[in-house]
Design a protein around this nucleic acid. Structure first.
Length: 623
DNA sequence: CTAGGGTTAG
């Protein structure tokens, strides 16, 4: 009798003990204190208390969150020893743990060994999103098929696991069909599911579909705004991003770091300095400064808006830097013609044990070519292959051609192209063509041009470049030939854009566009400028004066400049951001205008800044 | 008492 009562009492004590452990485990898991949860589990074992079906889900979740595959496997053994594997909640936690630790095969094994689970739907969901997270797309789709075939009901969590993988071109059909079924199945689809559809459409470039879905949302939460804003940003619609950002704020939704990353990257694209600075202040005010993504975005925003010092300040303040941070900072120096500083930073990075990747070398090579460091660049191209075992891509080859070309080593550039182990593309031949323009080599230019239009027959820039090469060598027949080619190809009118930021707003100008609210004043300003430019061109005996006076004013750059001069206060810097279009007339126009007005210009093309003062661009080899 | 999910950088 005595023995029995003591046994009963002991097991009751053990049960109480295990419950209080579980309560504590649950608390820690809820507060995302996963490391603490793992050590609590260890002390639970040490104290002789054995975990049960209520303990395992929490501790498995902690292992998953910390991605501890070894501890996870060990836990699995404990689960088996405790006879808990078939417990529904333990089973789902196990599958999820294996998936999060990157061991999808083990997850699948657990899944296959327990086909009778009462939570089969949840198991499928965990496995499907596990396959997705480990980028095993076809396996995820296979499991989804099996799920439907066996009659397990598909719920919103299934969709959340499945839809994000449907932005891959191969599975777009599936995404559309899922969306269709959702619409048919009733209007009460969860917000999260709709958000994932928005992201899916955005990722595969159907901005319109994504936007329509967004507009139709009954409630637009933070994540919906983020999905649509980052979607526009990824599709290069920077102007719309800023518009949406304003709308978001005025609808009372507070931006978070995810929003701000997209907004900053759009500011960088547009060169929207003021808005970018405001966002920078917001980042500081909200204590988002430690967010790695945000800091990286801030660096490239400041860099592309011309504020090198501020970019460096953000970079230096970062307690942890990722490879992206280094890349952005090095690219920043390359962009501003400070190749040497960029190279010093590269050394610094390598000294600190950060391994450069292919993208870093793109930045480094282009920094070298813009700073006249041809030999150093070639040396680094070699080091990239030998020391870092990186396989150069076409982007690297075109950098090297640019490097040699800008240095005037045209024959070497040609040899280099011929020795490439991969087929050169349009960018490679285009780099050579650009070099031929600088060094007035018409024969090689003709060769490069023939090649480049094989790859990019519809890129109008190359035709203009070739035409200008003929024009430099006074080859009228050549110019005429190019014009005929352009006419034959009937280029669809894709006007160039220029942007000017003024008082926190971005003003967009298209060639020949008269929709701007100040269009009358802008054109009047343009008249004045053109008159002065022509006088100046006459006085200076400018060798392109004639062409400047004869071209139409339907260029976005000109409209943007006129707007800038019209609206900015005397002495302020006008920032004209131009999408790269090869148009010499506008280049000459910009040079001359900067002599007329008492202002400095900063003009940005695709890869770097050009600072104008008194009609002189700070970089010698340009235009 | 308990499991499965969506948005972010060069």
């Amino acid at each position: 009798m005595n023995v029995v009562t003591s046994l009963v009492r002991n097991s009751a004590v053990a049960a109480v003990a295990s419950t209080s452990w579980n309560v504590r485990l649950r608390e820690l898991a809820y507060q995302s204190l996963f490391a603490e949860s793992v050590s609590l589990y260890r002390s639970m074992l040490r104290s002789g208390s054995s975990p049960d079906a209520f303990s395992f889900p929490f501790i498995l979740k902690s292992c998953a969150a910390l991605s501890l595959p070894v501890s996870g496997k060990q836990l699995h053994l404990h689960v088996i020893r405790g006879g808990c594997e078939a417990e529904p909640f333990v089973l789902t936690a196990l599958i999820s743990m294996y998936c999060k630790c990157g061991l999808v095969e083990d997850a699948r094994k657990v899944f296959d060994e327990n086909p009778q689970s009462s939570q089969l739907g949840v198991c499928y969901n965990a496995l499907i999103s596990g396959y997705r997270a480990n980028s095993k797309v076809s396996d995820a789709v296979f499991m989804f098929r099996r799920m439907k075939e066996t009659g397990v009901s598909v719920d919103s969590v299934t969709l959340l696991g499945l839809v994000p993988l449907c932005s891959a071109p191969d599975y777009l059909w599936l995404g559309r069909s899922l969306h269709g079924q959702c619409v048919k199945g009733g209007t009460d689809s969860e917000e999260a599911v709709l958000n994932s559809f928005i992201t899916m459409y955005m990722k595969c470039g159907s901005v319109e579909s994504g936007r329509r879905l967004f507009d139709e949302l009954p409630v637009k939460g933070l994540i919906s705004w983020n999905a649509v804003i980052s979607g526009y940003s990824q599709n290069g619609l920077a102007y719309d991003v800023l518009e949406l950002y304003e709308l978001m704020k005025s609808s009372g939704v507070c931006p978070d770091p995810v929003t701000l990353v997209s907004v900053l990257s759009s500011c960088a694209h547009l060169g929207a300095k003021k808005i970018g600075q405001e966002v920078g202040k917001l980042v500081e005010a909200n204590g988002f400064g430690s967010n790695l993504y945000l800091s990286n975005a801030l660096i490239s925003m400041y860099a592309r808006c011309g504020n090198l010092a501020k970019a460096r300040a953000v970079f230096d303040m970062m307690p942890v830097k990722s490879l992206v941070s280094w890349t952005a900072m090095i690219g920043c120096y390359g962009m501003h013609g400070m190749g040497e500083t960029g190279l010093m930073l590269l050394d610094d990075m390598i000294r600190r044990g950060v391994r450069p990747d292919g993208t870093v070398f793109v930045m480094v090579l282009s920094a070298c070519s813009h700073s006249g460091l041809a030999d150093k660049g070639l040396e680094l191209f070699d080091a990239m292959k030998r020391e870092y075992k990186l396989k150069p891509g076409l982007e690297h080859y075109s950098c090297v051609v640019d490097l040699l070309g800008r240095a005037g080593r045209l024959d070497e550039a040609m040899e280099f192209i011929n020795s490439m182990p991969v087929e050169p593309d349009g960018a490679v031949w285009g780099a050579l063509l650009g070099a031929c323009k600088i060094y007035k080599n018409v024969d090689m230019a003709e060769l490069a041009f023939a090649k480049v239009i094989e790859f990019e027959p519809m890129n109008i820039g190359y035709y203009v470049l070739m035409s200008n090469i003929y024009s430099d060598s006074k080859n009228q027949e050549g110019i005429w030939r190019i014009r005929v080619m352009m006419r034959e190809r009937a280029f669809r009118k894709k006007p160039g854009y220029s942007y000017v930021e003024h008082k926190g707003r971005v003003h967009l100008f298209l060639a020949g566009d008269r929709s701007h609210e100040q269009t009358e004043e802008v054109h009047r300003m343009l008249d004045e400028l053109e008159t002065s430019v022509m006088e100046l061109a006459g006085n200076m005996d400018c060798d392109r004066g004639e062409e400047v006076s004869s071209t139409s004013r339907e260029h976005s750059e000109r409209l943007a400049i006129a707007f800038g001069i019209l609206n900015s206060n005397p002495g302020t810097e006008i920032l004209v951001i131009k999408n790269l279009r090869v148009c010499e007339d506008c280049h000459v126009f910009i040079k001359l205008v900067s002599k007329i007005v008492d202002r400095q210009f900063v003009v940005r093309d695709a890869s770097r800044f050009h600072y104008f003062k008194d009609g002189i661009c700070s970089c010698k080899d340009y235009w």
